[in-house]
Design a protein around this nucleic acid. Structure first.
Lengths: 155, 155
DNA sequence: ATGAGCGTGTCAACATGCTGACATGAGGAG
DNA sequence: CTCCTCATGTCAGCATGTTGACACGCTCAT
């Protein structure tokens, strides 16, 4: 009951640094994408769709760690701008497969070019080895937390 | 101009993993803090205030990577619940120094206990050395991105 | 002293994301 | 076949965070 349970300053705690890094990355990408009229969410959605065409809204939502409803709004916006296409009628169940339209592919190419500057900057700060290590550590980290949420949930 | 600019699957890219880890951490903390009627923002605010009593709203906002306005809402809520106190009149300029109230300190102690379970889980997944390394890498990472935003801004 | 510049707190409008709820379609248990 | 369960898309309401704008108080150059 003394008064030093964990007095480590916040900027030495993994959680805080994680938030700081994620926040900085998001801001940088936002700046890079603003001239193209794309938000980070929209860009991520397009890129995901390029790598895995035919994903449904719910699948995209899970991949991007947001709710179905939020993803639905993003998809509607992108569809209205002609950047992607969704089957009008569900070929199976209620899931609507989504794919990039030609305009979306072009937009994505421009976006990737804009983002590559940010990527280059952030990766140049890390050695290739450090980058690989960080990916592995982040994956481990996320897996541990996800399992915790999944297991501790019932009670 | 071929079609393989960066086809590395998203779950091997630092940015994606960063978002994934941050998202998982936030969800886990949210679960841990919900029984105490605290959001992650509120908890972070209290903890920050314990480590650095007397911070103003704007200073807290910067430390937490949100706008002054958002922080103001958080502070109002915590003040109304009697968890912190703000000078009624600004002792200097317009900045209102904020400090933890006794109730806030008690609440924070309970919150820290709840959060420690999450911390233990996530840190047990990483070796102490990996943790230290990760902190260093994340700091480097964030610094590179912050400088980018600061420099590229003018043009 | 006076004015410009800056940081701060606050109000308003807007954007984004979430939870809750509902209908629908597929698949399995009886 | 019928009922139950589950995943999906969608609507509504709410919470949180952001930008834009303004007033105020300090500081510094003139």
């Amino acid at each position: 009951m003394s008064q030093a349970p964990d007095f480590r300053p916040v900027d030495e705690q993994v959680g805080y640094l994680l938030k700081k890094a994620a926040s900085a990355l998001r801001a940088a990408m936002d700046d890079a994408l603003r001239p193209l009229d794309l938000t980070v969410s929209q860009y991520a959605c397009l890129e995901l769709l390029r790598q895995q065409p035919g994903l449904s809204g719910s699948e995209l939502a899970r991949a991007m760690f947001v709710s179905r409803q939020s993803m639905n709004l993003v998809l509607k916006g992108l569809e209205r701008r002609g950047l992607l296409t969704r089957s009008a009628v569900p070929p199976h169940g209620k899931a609507l497969p989504t794919e990039l339209a030609p305009a979306g592919l072009a937009k994505l190419a421009a976006a990737n070019e804009a983002v590559s500057a940010v990527e280059k900057t952030m990766l140049s700060a890390l050695s290739p080895e450090a980058e690989r290590r960080m990916c592995a550590d982040l994956t481990t980290f996320a897996a541990a937390l996800t399992n915790l949420a999944g297991d501790a949930e019932p009670e």
